[in-house]
């Protein structure tokens, strides 16, 4: 006697196949849903804003009059913010990652720090804003300038960069560092000549991705206090500033007063999206170019 009854199998066959197809559709729709929402958003933004983008819009100073308003100030603000964020996060982030991965003894201290870095990555960005407000704007008395904003943003992305750098360092095969130690290299020589070059593409990719987070973030800057209508261009890190997403925010909330502000906001969103897209594309190019050759 056979255990698998052919008749029974035949009877169930149709309902099994039906179930299979239904679920396939459900999963497909779930995927499509995200794509559709994204497409609607982008189309709406482009319809609203694309016609407003021109040279004047990109190079003009801010203005209350929609026809004359430009986002050069916000672009420069974002640029100066990066001037602070990039070196601070790279030095602190990569330094921390090197210490934790290569120097720290595996023990209580190391796992304590590790856990807290993971926790920090999950702290809401507004909390970083409050921290930055308290420390950089008030206690250190920088005021709401690029430096204060940049340091606050650095705190925000630091955990992400640390984790990304740690992962890249860990991915460097042990046999490479062993070969280096085996020839009498010191730890630092091995780190500098072997481990960092091999980990660099990963570190860069992670850094660029977290920088795009800093470029798009508003909440911490809202807390620090960014002027809604800042006319002069920032010329250095001790100047007051605004950034692209802040400008989007102010134009959006004021669009009930002046209708065209909504168009300006949409145009700025397009500029910001293009910028982020370029950054992410760079990250992907780096990752593919240097993909594991060992």
């Amino acid at each position: 006697m056979k255990y698998v009854d052919t008749n029974q199998v035949q009877k169930n066959m149709n309902s099994r196949l039906l179930k299979n197809n239904v679920l396939k559709s459900v999963f497909f729709l779930a995927t499509i849903f995200g794509l559709i929402v994204l497409a609607v958003l982008i189309i709406r933004v482009i319809m609203q804003g694309a016609s407003w983008i021109n040279m004047d819009f990109l190079t003009n100073k801010l203005s209350t009059s929609p026809d004359r308003a430009g986002i050069m100030g916000a672009i420069l603000g974002t640029f100066w913010l990066m001037v602070v964020v990039i070196p601070v996060t790279l030095i602190l982030g990569v330094g921390t990652a090197i210490y934790l991965e290569l120097y720290a003894r595996k023990g209580r201290f190391q796992s304590f720090v590790q856990t807290n870095i993971a926790n920090l990555a999950g702290v809401p960005s507004i909390v970083y804003g409050i921290l930055g407000m308290t420390i950089f704007v008030r206690a250190l008395d920088f005021g709401n300038v690029v430096l204060a904003g940049g340091l606050t943003m650095s705190l925000l992305v630091l955990p992400i960069i640390i984790v990304a750098a740690q992962e890249s360092i860990r991915a460097v095969p042990q046999h490479l560092s062993e070969a280096s130690y085996g020839m009498g290299a010191t730890k630092w020589q091995t780190v500098k000549n072997i481990i960092l070059p091999a980990a660099l593409p990963g570190i860069l990719t992670g850094s660029i991705l977290s920088l795009s987070r800093a470029i798009g973030e508003t909440a911490p800057l809202v807390v620090i206090g960014i002027p809604a209508l800042l006319i002069p261009f920032p010329g250095g890190i001790m100047d007051r500033f605004t950034v692209l997403p802040m400008q989007i925010y102010y134009w959006t909330i004021d669009s009930s007063l002046v209708e065209e502000y909504a168009n300006l906001a949409a145009a700025t969103i397009i500029v910001l999206l293009v910028l982020l897209f370029l950054l992410n594309a760079t990250a992907i190019v780096i990752r593919n170019k240097f993909q594991k050759r060992y």
Binding site: P173, H175, L176, E178, A179, S180, G182, I194, P197, A198, R293, Y294
Partner: peptide, 9 residues
């Protein structure tokens, strides 16, 4: 000299 050839990249 190691088991698996391990030249540097």
């Amino acid at each position: 000299v190691f088991q698996k050839p391990n030249p540097f990249p």
